[in-house]
């Protein structure tokens, strides 16, 4: 079993108006087999947490720590984090010119596993995973995310999740911009990944609808860079009815 521990994390970004603190002390522990939903209004710092875990250079950790089985994640470069077993399904996957999906997936898989996958099995795995996610076979020959629709990009993120088999997956608003059918397909992919290999999941979302398909064990409500409340799945239901108002309206 693995553990991802986030302790009293403070994160800021540089803006034209100066340094702005976004995360103001986040503490959170995820174990293998657990699904944690991070919910909260826009601007509460949910995506900042996701990007910070992955190591995006825009975010500066001013204090606190992130540990993966006791190893200091903040000391690792972006690629080292991925090889250590962290995966971020991005909210806005970028288009990468000149690199086909096939080439990209194989190169990444090789990097993560430290050895090239057996060609025969790999090709079969990729095909099967694409079929499961209803991704057209000819996407394999297209450049990474180039000209893909928003929904296609999200499916391709989950395709990678299924193929790379990370220890921890952070899904940054994977549900945003998806219609109901796509949401189902993507959710099934996440559930398959959780079932087929040992994984802990951090599911970042603004809306509760994805939680109909992926059941969280824990729900954390983010407000203004902190966890304002946490609980079980019932907390999500409560948010569905009440919205975030009671957190944002200062008492």
């Amino acid at each position: 079993m693995s553990t991802l521990e986030i302790k009293d994390l403070h994160v800021s970004i540089d803006t034209e108006q100066g340094t702005k603190e976004i995360l103001k002390g986040v503490t959170l522990t995820i174990n293998t087999g657990e699904t944690h939903a991070i919910m909260g209004p826009n601007g509460s710092g949910k995506s900042t947490l996701a990007s910070t875990i992955a190591g995006h250079p825009r975010y500066n950790v001013t204090s606190g720590s992130i540990l993966l089985d006791g190893e200091d994640v903040l000391e690792m470069s972006v690629d080292e984090r991925a090889r250590a077993g962290l995966f971020l399904a991005m909210q806005y996957p970028v288009e990468v010119p000149g690199v086909t999906m096939t080439n990209f997936l194989r190169t990444a898989k090789t990097a993560i596993d430290g050895e090239a996958p057996s060609l025969r099995h790999w090709t079969k795995d990729v095909k099967a995973a694409m079929a499961n996610l209803k991704i057209d076979a000819d996407f394999a020959n297209r450049n990474v995310n180039e000209g893909f629709s928003g929904g296609e990009k999200k499916r391709v993120e989950i395709l990678q999740l299924e193929l790379f088999k990370p220890r921890f997956a952070v899904l940054d608003e994977t549900d945003s911009g998806l219609d109901v059918d796509a949401l189902k397909v993507v959710s099934e992919g996440v559930n398959r990944a959780s079932e087929n290999h040992e994984m802990g999941t951090m599911l970042i979302t603004h809306y509760t609808r994805i939680l109909r398909y992926i059941t969280p064990d824990f729900v954390h409500v983010f407000v203004d860079g902190r966890v304002a409340e946490q609980g079980g799945p019932e907390l999500a239901e409560q948010l569905e009815e009440e919205g975030y108002d009671r957190f944002t309206v200062k008492a």
Partner: peptide, 26 residues
């Protein structure tokens, strides 16, 4: 940097990421 971040977030080191893009492009 965003291309680089995307590829590196998938475990690919910076040097390989650059080569991947240029080689593919040309």
């Amino acid at each position: 940097d965003e291309h680089l971040f995307y590829l590196m977030a998938r475990g690919i080191d910076e040097k390989t990421a650059r080569r991947l893009v240029v080689r593919g492009f040309l």
